[in-house]
Design a protein around this nucleic acid. Structure first.
Lengths: 347, 347
DNA sequence: AAAATTTATGCAATCGTTTGTAATAAATAT
DNA sequence: ATATTTATTACAAACGATTGCATAAATTTT
């Protein structure tokens, strides 16, 4: 212990082993070591085995900085999560986190690392920083993006894939579900159950939510119903205000018999609040959620939700990004993740 | 569009700007550019402004690979999530994900990046790879670690911080909650409600769970109860088997009036199953969960759980790691995250 | 057996920064 | 007016890998 701390003070930190050292010990040149370690056919089999065994036994591992400097391929993809500087909330949204998990799965399956960074929305240029600095070979952006214009101006022809709504005239590849259709499906599901006054809980400032709302209106039109403006509540995905919003509706005697929640969190919170107010679900008010996060399945009673497969979304994002990186195809088309109305359950 | 694809085929990718280019344009040497960009006092104020402005306007950013090769400081911490090669499940456990989110918050607050990698448990040496290769300056390991011995042999004096139970004779720094106490608190809570036959749902192969079970036994002893072996069910955190387990207990007529679940997922699943079987909660069977994941708060009826603050845990992990890195203190003490029995709710 | 080919290895340049040291110009002291 | 100090800047050597090219040894061909 004391020897240790002495070490720390007097000597430099124990020098990292490098190729030169391995080379010296193996009695070959560094070129040979490099080739051996990378399985080049230019090195004798016997030598290769000897060198790799030596390297292994000495616990040597290639310096990634140096390698990257030469090769410009660092096997790393950055996932950027923007946040509002106004309320720099934590990364706690289960949708984000689940997406993050699936992206991690997908990337590690492809032998890549995932670099996570959070950036403030008012420092948008930072989105590309991990790529520009050579930290990552590409960028995945998750999060409802409020600043489409700025993003659009910045990222043309860069290796970037965005989760979110398709916007008019967009210069980047985005993957997302068809929010218009999702909104339509959810609303139709409620209408088919005979609901006539359907509350919409979601913040229409977000493009994705706006599109869902359009679907909501479309369903109303299709079934000859009119949507009451008063029933549109700008609730954030995190559902913080939902209890108060519902109570407020009831206090104002604004009646409703259906509720379309733009996230499962909102749905869960709404159901909880309604039950607390002794309004039976689904008898008095039917609720449909959105996302189908894993936890929704554990909720009791089970909730009906618009399933957008986060796993498929993650896979598509990764695939799209690699396509761009490999120049296989550059398109600004949106890939759609299929949507299903379903009762959330564990399978 | 066609011009674009042509470009892709004929030209190399547009060469990255480098210091040399900036230097040439600014009419100075690269050293000066480097110093200007890093705010060195060895460069004239006027020059500095001119150079930084130029770099900014050209959207130049320092190549991280080259910089890292020189400086050995890449501002990156790796978070390693081990998984069982037997069942390579997805990163979907909400506890993991929440932890991941908080670590990301904490690191980004400190101006660092988070690198996520999943490794197979039978390739343990890979834990240190991100550090050994110079990809990251330190490692955080999350996850119930089944292979304490191997880990222990490998990581002495390396910059690594582990989330988990404290093990005898450990050579690494670990952060975790006092599982013994947690198990005790949960059980005591049930006993104080008059419960006498308390089922334990958790896989004792995991050190953390084993410690909780010890706490469970301790509480029994304290209150002069005997724990029935038959009531100890090896349920995984993910709760997949919980429904079947409960039904099996009931079919075998093994009665119980309390249930201590080692994760909130288990608790939620158990409550759902019991309700489905018309066994009222908490009247007939009282349930206590563990973790206090965010979503538990949305569950209805609200569930009682042992709160271990994941946020505090994440902060402690990061802090401990930086302490090691900065040689501020190397200790193999465990830092405890405080525990509270509480009804999960949104605040 | 000599020439041509194949196989295995080493040399040295390179990737894009940072930084110790030397060089120059400007400012101050003698 | 000269010597000394101070402020800027440039030069060139690292950092640790990869790889085109040259070379030497082993093999095959003629």
């Amino acid at each position: 212990m004391s020897e240790n701390s002495l070490n720390k003070q007097t000597n430099k930190i124990q020098k990292r082993l490098q190729m030169q050292d391995i080379a010296k010990l193996a009695g070959v040149s560094t070129s040979t070591v490099s080739r051996a370690l990378n399985g080049s056919s230019l090195v004798n089999e016997e030598t290769r085995l000897r060198v790799t065994a030596l390297a292994q036994s000495l616990n040597y591992s290639i310096d990634i900085g140096a390698q990257n400097l030469r090769l410009k391929n660092n096997k790393t993809v950055a996932v950027v999560i923007p946040f509002d500087s106004a309320n720099p909330q934590h990364v706690s949204d289960p949708f984000f986190l689940t997406m993050l998990g699936h992206i991690a799965d997908e990337l590690s399956m492809l032998g890549h690392y995932m670099l996570v960074s959070r950036i403030s929305a008012d420092n948008l240029t930072a989105v590309l920083e991990p790529y520009e600095s050579g930290r990552a070979i590409g960028i995945i952006v998750i999060g409802q993006w409020r600043y489409h214009e700025q993003l659009n101006a910045m990222v043309a022809n860069k290796p970037i894939a965005v989760w979110g709504a398709k916007m008019p005239n967009q210069h980047y590849v985005s993957i997302g579900s068809d929010n218009l259709r999702g909104g339509y499906l959810a609303t139709e599901h409620l209408i088919k159950q005979g609901r006539k006054r359907i509350a919409f809980f979601g913040n229409k400032d977000l493009p994705e939510v706006a599109q869902r709302y359009a679907g909501y209106l479309m369903a109303h039109q299709k079934y000859d119903l009119v949507a009451d403006q008063q029933l549109s509540i700008p609730a954030p995905f995190s559902a913080d205000t939902v209890s108060a919003d519902i109570e407020s509706l009831i206090n104002q005697s604004i009646s409703f018999d259906g509720l379309f929640a733009c996230s499962d969190l909102i749905a869960m919170r709404a159901i909880g609040t309604l039950q607390k107010l002794k309004i039976s679900v689904p008898e008095k008010v039917a609720v449909v959620g959105y996302d189908d996060i894993v936890l929704a399945a554990y909720f009791h009673p089970s909730i009906t939700t618009i399933k957008q497969s986060i796993e498929v979304g993650a896979q598509s994002l990764v695939k799209a990004l690699f396509n761009i990186i490999n120049h296989e195809k550059i398109s600004s088309e949106q890939l759609d993740v299929s949507l299903v109305v379903r009762e959330s359950s564990i399978n």
